[in-house]
Amino acid sequence: MAWQTPENLKYTQNDEWFDPETGRSGITDYAQDQLSDVVYVEFLVDVGDEVQKGDSVATVESVKAAADVYAPVSGKVVEINTDLTDNPEWVNEDPYGKAWMIRLEPTNPEEMNELMDAEAYAQYCEERE
């Protein structure tokens, strides 16, 4: 099984991705596959909130599982993809595109070095199968 792991993104151990370019984040292809069909996305933060790396920012539910989504880095929430609330299936269809979840303005760019690159993350996914 191979999952998409775009080269330009950074990854967390909890299967979130982060785009250093745009500040957007979401959950990975591997995560959506594990969850199966996503039926509900709920955001736990508001625009303007300051979050620490690892804070819960959203919850994703499928018919058989529920998962918390954590902030990949610390920062200020500048945008939330509220369209996801009505279109939870995007998480399965396009996890790195339409299903971005929040956009952050990182407050501690150092933290980005702690994230995995695409190659390391792809390997991390394989290891767990």
Partner: peptide, 10 residues
């Protein structure tokens, strides 16, 4: 037969 649970939830 088997039930479409995803449809129910969506």
């Amino acid at each position: 037969g088997r039930v479409d649970e995803v449809k129910a939830a969506r």
